[in-house]
Amino acid sequence: MKRNISLFVLCLVIIGLSSCSGKYVRGNSFGLMYEEKPVTVLLFPPINQTEVPGVEHDLWEAFYMAMCEKGYYAFSPALCCELFSKDSLYYNADSLYEGDLSRLHAELEVDAALFVKVKSFRLDKTGANIDFECRLRSAKSGRILYSYDKEVRAFAATFSGGRAFAFGVPMEFFLQQLDAATSDKLIAVHNCAVQVLVDMPVGKYSKKRYGKDRNVIVSSPKHEVELRL
């Protein structure tokens, strides 16, 4: 029996060591994030390429909250709308997706801009499948600091002890205030945003981990990370 226990512990050590020595860690996958150290992030309204109306607005707010939780100063959609209300040039996410962002840095002191393209959106009983193309581009250099291009499966809610949670917050309010389809969609897009940004190095407001997460293993190493334009 002692032999069995030793074997088991040995297996655990091997598994632990093999996972720690992964090639894909935040430090080498998203090195430019550590080099440029963006603080302020302007979120452009997601480009909706699906036939689902309004999903871009839900995603915009979801990404704003998720970016804040990552430790960045993200401008909320309400503030962005006000900011762009007199200058439609800023508002055009399509033209700026690969265009020059230097004006954002020069006039608004924005460090980076987050662009999201929603290619497909399918909602079912338990969650949603969303095909994303997401990139965070530096407003100083134009380089791509973080990118994510694949389909995400997100559940409408995560359950813990019989209560539904999103962002670690009880979600009973969803059920009371919105119809089931809308609340499912909203929880699913919030969970999707969290998943899309899961590998992003943390920002300066996540003080405990800021600059110390280079060796965190990237959870989706299969997708190729584009580091430069």
Partner: peptide, 19 residues
Amino acid sequence: DAPLYTWYDYGVVRARYRK
């Protein structure tokens, strides 16, 4: 780590106001 901020029901209330 645990969440940085307490959002309460901001996401839902904001969506309801927008719609």
